[in-house]
């Protein structure tokens, strides 16, 4: 007979060694993306293949620009956390740490680049 609760025995035994905040964060960003992504696919799909001036005119408008910014910020956070979940399942120790840092770095570079482009086109 062990005088310890089932919860105490379970804590830290998952592959991530942490609680439910990560999963909840993925749920919240998933719901946001469920609204953002179909709209963005339509906007981006229409812009792709157009000439230089048309593309700039599209992303100079508030709606496509703000939508793209939101897709990038929310989407890349969703990606970084999702990639982290995958890495935590397959890698351990230093490799795990380096992979997670790389995933967050790639996401940050993409968000920064995208926002820079949007601001430059808008101005």
């Amino acid at each position: 007979m062990r005088y310890i609760t089932a919860r105490k025995r379970a804590i830290g035994k998952g592959s991530a060694h942490t609680g439910t905040e990560h999963h909840w964060s993925m749920t919240v960003s998933a719901v946001a993306l469920a609204f953002l992504v179909p709209t963005w696919v339509y906007v981006f799909g229409h812009a792709l293949g157009q000439d230089y001036d048309t593309v700039r005119a599209t992303f100079a408008r508030p709606f496509p620009s703000i939508l793209t910014a939101m897709v990038l910020v929310v989407g890349m956070r969703h990606f970084a956390k999702g990639a982290t979940m995958m890495i935590e399942d397959y890698a351990r120790g230093t490799a795990r740490k380096l992979c997670i840092i790389a995933a967050y770095s790639i996401s940050s570079v993409i968000v920064a680049t995208g926002l820079y482009a949007l601001v430059k086109i808008a101005l």
Binding site: R56, F59, L72, I106, I110, T113, G114, Y116, A117, I121
Partner: peptide
């Protein structure tokens, strides 16, 4: 796909 799309957007800005 996202990286390629953002590169394309950056090019349009430059």
């Amino acid at each position: 796909g996202v990286a390629l799309a953002v590169w394309w957007l950056l090019a349009a800005a430059v």
